[in-house]
Amino acid sequence: MNAPALETRDLAKRYGKIEALRGVSLSVEPGEIYGLLGQNGAGKTTLIKILLGITRNWKGEARLLGQPAGKSAVLARVGYLPEDHRFPEYHTGASLLQFYGQLLGVSRDLRRTRIPAILDTVGLADRMHTKIRGYSKGMKQRLGVAQALMHDPEVIFLDEPTDGVDPLGRKEIRTMILQLKAQNRTIFLNSHLLGEVELICDRVGILQKGRMVREGEVATLTRQKGSFLVGLAPGQTLPVAELQKLDYVVAPYGERWEIHLRDDQTIDPVVDFIRSQGLNLRHLVEKRQSLEDLFLETLKEREAPTQRPVPR
């Protein structure tokens, strides 16, 4: 198995009285898109800053690309789009990338070809020689994406990448992230926009008040346990009463029916029953909940901790 691209264990950080992180453990494999979710102030940015050595004096373990976090050499292989960033406004888009490229150790030849290319990719080619001072918020965010990708990094940290970007721009950023995944890059994404994360992430963690309260693959987390939607050929009706006799919980759901399974039940007897009745099954899916539902539910659980033990 490959070593993880990044890894933390019992990571804790205090800012004076504020406990920003209270023992967070996570691990991201190479080539994965990992989304860290959480409300504002949950500690998402702090976690990235620790991995990048921007924040110091923390407890626990943190490793990035096999090196202890804070080692500066490894940063040449990492791309970072900070949240709420402000570029030095005396630069133009192109000169800024020149400057950062030099600091990242990108050779002159590579800079010459890559800078115009990446600025073209993010749609800033025609404005690359004007001062950043005159850029709109969306343009600055695109430039932020460009500077995070210009040196072809192995791991990319994106802190609220779609913040302040219009819906079209968001879609473009999502597409770009998926392209990066196709190139086997590791992507670590911070966001409070759950809908977006759901669309692209392989795995997510939910951070709340400095603690990891849920973690797992998006597909697993959003699967609603034991709930299916059944649809029949037009004109046909499900014999609800018969199924209820078989001890299934059935409720109409628009033109379809929703079936809840009890802990010991499976869906197969229902399918057999429909067949035996001479009905035509047209639609059968396991019902999912959105990440947002999951998130809200998780928060509710956390606020009333007596209801259920905290998932680890």
Partner: peptide, 10 residues
């Protein structure tokens, strides 16, 4: 907002 860029360089 600016410092992050520079201190995250190698």
């Amino acid at each position: 907002g600016t410092v992050d860029f520079i201190v995250s360089k190698p």
